[in-house]
């Protein structure tokens, strides 16, 4: 196990470095002057030269890359002050330390992810299992049909409808807003309720369909039929044999969805005017803000790699046939 973890974590560091290098040098293939981009209304050659120097763009690209990567390990000094490790540089656009911006935005992203995850796992897996249990019944047909319809919805379509209905037309709820849970648990919950509900509706439908189909598939497996033939109780067979077997694809998808959400739920954040990691990524990309884009990319990559490792570990727990070398 330890050997597995060391090998995977070492690999993750190499992949992170490669993602960083790829993003950095890809940025420089864009034919534009970052100093001029950061220059406002009064863009004289003298001012551009000052900006170039202030941003460190007057140094060779390889030096800039090396300084950026070293900053992650040991921190860096900027005119704005010392940027402690893991330093992801200073945003060209806002002048803020990128790491500070990420730390500031992450609680919202985490709230959105955790709240959404709880709802769509509870409802999605629950209704999926019920549909599989009652396969062929009216309940199965209703669940299957509605999940088919809802999974074809998109957040940018459903979100504005829900806002119009619950906020703008009736005033039953306030516009979504992030309030830290430490400030007010009640306001935190109410502020995130609509984004969670809309996001979870779409994810729930997808998980319902997946849980139903994998359970039905598992229920037809030989070992399940053998268990039934041995006279085991239906409920025991369902959960002990079939459910465990269906968990592998579900855990894989949860890992992928979780890493995607933690890297930033872009559409959800923009639909509900929230400022999380997703919005930060878009801001960095639109303003051609290299340090910000690099920082968010690496942060997202970190979650993808870590969650991949966790999912691999979960496989071993769920299915003893999976052996970790």
């Amino acid at each position: 196990m330890l050997q597995f973890l060391i090998r995977r974590l070492s690999g993750a560091v190499v992949i992170m470095f490669l993602i960083g290098a790829f993003t950095f040098f890809l940025f420089y293939t864009i034919p534009q002057d970052f100093a001029q981009l950061s220059c406002g209304k009064n863009c004289s050659p003298e001012n551009i030269a000052v900006i170039r120097e202030n941003l460190g763009l007057d140094k060779p690209i390889t030096t800039q890359f090396w300084e950026f990567m070293m900053g992650i390990v040991s921190g860096r000094d900027f005119p704005q002050g010392h940027c402690a490790a893991p330093c992801l540089g200073v945003s060209f656009d806002s002048g803020q330390f990128v790491w500070d911006s990420i730390v500031d935005r992450f609680p919202l992203t985490l709230s959105l992810t955790i709240g959404g995850l709880v709802i769509f796992l509870l409802f999605g897996l629950g209704t999926g299992l019920m549909a599989a249990w009652k396969r062929g019944t009216a309940l199965d047909k209703v669940v299957s049909g509605s999940s088919m319809v809802l999974s074809s919805f998109q957040i940018y379509f459903l979100g504005p409808i829900v806002l119009s209905l619950l906020v703008f037309n009736t005033g039953w709820l306030e516009s979504p807003k992030y309030v830290p849970i430490t400030d007010s648990p009640g306001q935190w919950f109410m502020g995130m309720l609509i984004p969670w509900a809309v996001m979870a509706t779409i994810f729930t439908a997808q998980y319902t369909r997946m849980a139903r189909s994998t359970m039905i598939e598992q229920l037809q497996e030989e070992h399940v039929r053998t268990a039934r033939a041995k006279g085991m109780r239906q409920r025991y067979v369902f959960f002990r044999y079939a459910w465990r077997g269906s968990l592998i694809p579900i855990v894989t998808i949860i890992g992928m969805d979780l890493s995607a959400l933690l890297s930033g739920a872009v559409v959800t954040e923009f639909t509900f005017d929230l400022a999380g990691i997703g919005r930060l990524a878009v801001e960095g990309s639109l303003s051609k803000d290299l340090p910000l884009t690099m920082g968010v990319m690496l942060f997202g990559a970190f979650f993808i790699l870590i969650l991949n490792i966790i999912v691999d570990l979960a496989y071993a727990y769920i299915d003893p046939r999976v052996r970790l070398a």
């Binding site: 220059c39 406002g40 009064n42 004289s44 001012n47």
Partner: peptide, 9 residues
């Protein structure tokens, strides 16, 4: 000074 580069001149 170089601290200021975006304002009016």
């Amino acid at each position: 000074s170089k601290v200021i580069f975006d304002g009016p001149t």
